[in-house]
Amino acid sequence: MAKKLFSWPSLFSSTDEQAMWRVRTDDDAEAFAKLVARWQGPIQNLCTRMIGDAHRGEDLAQDTFARLYTRRKNYEPTARFSTFLWRMALNICYDELRKLKRRGEFSLHEYEDGDGPAFDPGADEPAPDARLAENERAETVRNALLQLAEPYRVVVVLRHYEGLKFREIGDVLGIPEGTVKSRMAEALSQLSKRLNSLMTDEPRTVPRPREKLLI
């Protein structure tokens, strides 16, 4: 109990659910600003990966938060805020994809003009030729991902890039955890086939921490 009393986060921050509850009941602008600050990055990344366009991804993230505010009364405190928000963002992405497909604007070649996907501009900035090669690989992966059917793509984006657990993805999509896993396996198989040349041309042998689990 004493530990809880002196826990800094509990004193000075609120959970997303508490913040959203204040937004819902009191139209609390400060609580809303906190939610935006916490979730803007993940939601923007989700939208960018689903649509394959960073600028549209940013706009769709703005749309998501605008909708979150206008529909704040729909939030039920029994539900996890993250599930509520992921669903809202995905619905906006699906609407956008439908519009793009209807207009014939859905493009797999966004970066053909050389304006490649931006990379972490960290201190270890790669040399121009290495950067070019990275951009090409990223573009290949982006195209392969966009060619996946939406039910597979959304699972890949939420699990691989956003780091949600399979169970959480099941909650967001309203499907059993086993279905999420089988879709992930199928998606990885399809991606492996499509990216075969990329993987054989440029073997990336640096394992990620979770992959060390195997043998």
Partner: peptide, 13 residues
Amino acid sequence: GMGALDEWKLPQA
């Protein structure tokens, strides 16, 4: 496939 997916990085917002 998982390794290939890591090739598409996005900048931090």
